[in-house]
Design a protein around this nucleic acid. Structure first.
Lengths: 351, 351
DNA sequence: GCGCTTCGACGAAGCGCTTCGACAAACCGT
DNA sequence: ACGGTTTGTCGAAGCGCTTCGTCGAAGCGC
């Protein structure tokens, strides 16, 4: 690997001039610049990141902490990562992912304090998240993706689960639905204080009650199998159900399968609205699902921008961002059927 | 952030002694060591990664290049990342993920040459992969997860698709199945030279022919919907089908749903063997799938070990590793039904 | 033509660590 | 008691950059 020294020699200039050419911090004449650039290409020069980081005390790297082991890496996360990486790159930063588990707060703190990253994006923030305290006390710049229970005074961006569930209920209510069920994430996620599960649950119940409707919901494990079981149970409990809001992709596949097996037509007999959905999931079933697409890309972009604004004190700190999911029309939502009009009222199996 | 200088002062020793205490490169008396360690704790010292890297020309970081945007981040990858991170950590390295796309070979090369990582793990290697050439010419240590068309002389670890498909066919054949179908990944993946799709296809056909059986297979898009359609088509083409090997998780959900709807019992009427499967997927359906679990964790561990052996020239280079998937008994495979015994021969819908 | 500013380039001082050579002090056998 | 090791520690020389202060040369108005 060629060093700046060698580039300078070859171009017949001093090291500092090479440095200024690279950073643009001070003017360099066009002639000199082109000699230097030529020398760089000929030598295949790439600046040493450590020397640069040591001298400038900035790494131009932002780290994304994501517990890959616990949560898999779904489509929404992929969208997030991609958008975040692009945004960072556009601003001259590299985005790297640190696959730490939720319980490795101390290791995160130590690594963060080694200076390898200028700032940190913390994903899958739980309501009470020890990692946040660690970063705070480590004196590292960070931005949460998600929110702790009381996020005041800490930088974050998050999905607006309240608004998303409200919008979902409103959309269905406007189509005449009154018996609306909600299939949420697993009880395990609830128990461990997973924000989305809790906030969406509250949002759904509130939205239903605000309309004088009775909220019916279940926490369901993330599998098609669990989705089928839950669907059967909900139909048994509330035979008049005409719409389901789901926030659990794997379970949603099961919902669709179970309804098909029971001879219930989607959306004629029962509407399905899948919320906080990964890209592409809508087209995986027939009819294609009507979804409210999780704003992964938007979140990634805003998260990086917020973090960078923190690093660069000259840039105004944009306020925290709460982004709702947007409705993507599909074929699984329609007006509520007239009472008693359904082919198979009561929910028995067709054969 | 406290520096080594400050630690040395507080402990009343020289900087080099502090350094030796940390690295263990030279002996330090117990008394001195404990004074130094105490000073470190009091000051909350964390060595500066840049200074360390600059002086030692090693980063103790290995980078995992994974195209998060293109491929989502499924369970197998999560397992891989987790195992790789653990293995690396156990050897004193940090594992970071660089989310570069398949087409960003030049950027990968440049970043790699900046020295931020001692070695690189390249995932999702295609048969003709420009990224491999880039890393090679950049003079960076790397190990491929997967193989190029002609991987000779390049370090890699991969799933043994040939053996896995052979084992799958053998397992079913031993149970009396002769009409065996294969549901592979999408045609798009085939067209772009995705190794697993191609190697598994060849393996399946070879294994079938070796037994005098006729291979029946389809490339199917990664969705439950496509799985249903493919199932219907295969049953139409070969009504005598008694077993399906699937290497496409999303499609597998569709297969299960379609069979259920047709009133075909799994495994009594038709066996399903899901190969190269992510953890947990088997339990997502009923009956739970019999799977051949992708060795993600094993691959992660071996990949890191291979890479580290390359970095540390004293360690013998273990030869390239080809790891088969292992059979995980479930409830979706049984002996072939007696000919004509099936409830619904011919494939019509039950109702 | 004079002092003035502006422009472009240089040299050197670090950044915080690793590592090498050197060297007292303690330890050994004889 | 004496040379020869060993043991524990120190000082200093970098690693390859950034950045600050400096300074000659060119450009300016009058």
């Amino acid at each position: 690997m060629a060093t700046m020294q060698e580039v300078a020699q070859r171009a017949g200039v001093s090291v500092s001039t090479v440095s200024y050419t690279l950073s643009g911090t001070r003017p360099v004449s066009a002639a000199t610049r082109s000699r230097i650039l030529a020398a760089m290409t000929e030598l295949g020069f790439q600046p040493n990141a450590f020397a640069r980081g040591l001298a400038s005390r900035r790494s131009n790297v932002i780290a994304l902490i994501y517990p890959a082991a616990e949560r898999g890496l779904g489509g929404t996360v992929a969208e997030f990562v991609d958008a975040a990486a692009r945004t960072a790159r556009g601003r001259g930063y590299h985005l790297v992912l640190w696959p730490f588990g939720m319980d490795q707060a101390a290791q995160i703190r130590d690594l963060a304090r080694q200076g390898l990253a200028d700032g940190i994006l913390l994903m899958e923030v739980a309501l009470d998240d020890p990692r946040v305290e660690c970063l705070q006390e480590a004196g590292v710049q960070y931005t949460m993706i998600g929110r702790t229970r009381r996020p005041e005074g800490r930088p974050w961006v998050d999905i607006d689960f309240e608004r998303t569930t409200h919008d979902a209920v409103a959309h269905l209510a406007a189509l005449g639905h009154t018996r609306i069920g909600f299939i949420n994430h697993s009880r395990a996620s609830l128990d461990e204080g997973y924000g989305p599960t809790i906030r969406a649950q509250e949002g759904f119940e509130q939205a239903m009650r605000a309309r004088g409707l009775t909220p019916l919901s279940r926490h369901v494990d993330e599998s098609p199998r669990a989705g089928r079981v839950a669907t059967a149970a909900m139909l048994a409990a509330e035979p008049g159900l005409t719409a389901l809001i789901t926030m659990n992709e794997m379970a949603t596949f099961g919902v669709v399968a179970e309804l098909a097996q029971r001879g219930l037509a989607v959306p004629a007999d029962l509407s399905i609205l899948s919320i906080v959905t990964s890209p592409g999931v809508g087209d995986m079933t027939y009819p294609p699902l009507t979804t409210m697409h999780a704003p992964g890309a938007e979140l990634g972009r805003l998260g990086v921008e917020k973090l960078l604004s923190l690093l660069d004190s000259t840039r105004a700190d944009t306020s925290n961002a709460l982004i709702p999911c947007v409705l993507e029309p599909g074929g699984s939502v329609a007006a509520a059927p007239a009472p008693g009009a359904r082919a198979d009222d009561g929910g028995g199996r067709p054969n």
